[in-house]
Computed example of a mutant assay.
Amino acid sequence: MSRTGYFVLAWCCVGLGIIGAFLPVMPTTIFIIIAAWAFAKSSPEREQWLLNHARFGPALRNWREHRVIPLRAKCTAYSMITLSGLFSMYMLNAKPYLLTLTLICLTMVVIYIHRHPSVPRQLDNSSS
């Protein structure tokens, strides 16, 4: 993909992330992470802008440095995954193989999210 393609992708993800900040059913964090990645490939200045952004910067830096998913983001994700699972159960009850596949995928996402810390691990220098 060209630098222009990455740049357009980054701005689209920033837009989706902003929308997600106001709509509870749409994620914010993943779009901002993708935007930072795409800006890193297309515009280092925009990447720095995003990393230093007052609202998105701290979560983005915590993800990059510590692979942290904030507790609020986890709770929102768990809620949306639960609603998606319930909706799938309702919509796919006649197709058990699709329901099983969907629930397995949702479970894998929950496991992935759960395995990441909610706060950065602090180095304990006092136990030297």
Rank of each mutant, 00 (worst) to 15 (best):
W49N: 00
I19T: 09
L101N: 07
G15A: 11
D124I: 12
T29H: 11
A10P: 02
H114V: 07
L50F: 01
L16S: 08
L83E: 11
I104N: 06
I34Q: 11
S84V: 11
L98R: 13
P70H: 00
C75N: 15
L98K: 15
S43M: 04
S126R: 14
M89E: 14
C12W: 06
F56N: 01
T29R: 10
L71T: 04
L9S: 13
L50M: 01
N125W: 15
E65Y: 08
H53T: 05
L16N: 13
L23K: 13
A59C: 05
Q48S: 08
V109K: 05
H114G: 11
K74P: 02
L92T: 09
L92R: 09
V119L: 13
I33G: 02
P120H: 04
R67P: 02
I113T: 10
L123E: 14
L50Y: 02
V14T: 02
R72L: 05
I111R: 12
A54K: 09
V14M: 03
S42Y: 02
A54Y: 05
Y112W: 13
W63R: 06
N125T: 15
T82N: 10
K95P: 00
P44S: 09
T76C: 02
Y112H: 12
N52T: 07
G5S: 14
P70G: 01
F22R: 06
F31M: 09
S43F: 04
C12Q: 13
C12I: 04
P24A: 15
F22M: 04
R72N: 04
E65I: 02
S84I: 10
A36Q: 00
S88G: 14
S42V: 06
P120W: 08
I32A: 02
N125F: 15
H116I: 03
S127Y: 11
T76E: 07
S84G: 12
W49K: 01
Y97I: 11
Y112I: 07
S84R: 12
R46D: 04
R55N: 04
Y97Q: 15
L103E: 15
T100V: 10
N62Y: 05
Y112M: 06
V68N: 12
L106V: 12
V119C: 08
S126W: 03
I81F: 10
L23V: 14
E47T: 02
R115C: 09
A77G: 07
E45Y: 03
A40S: 15
I111F: 11
H116E: 01
P117G: 01
F31G: 01
D124H: 13
L101H: 05
T76H: 08
L50K: 00
S88E: 07
A35D: 03
S126M: 02
V14S: 01
T82Y: 14
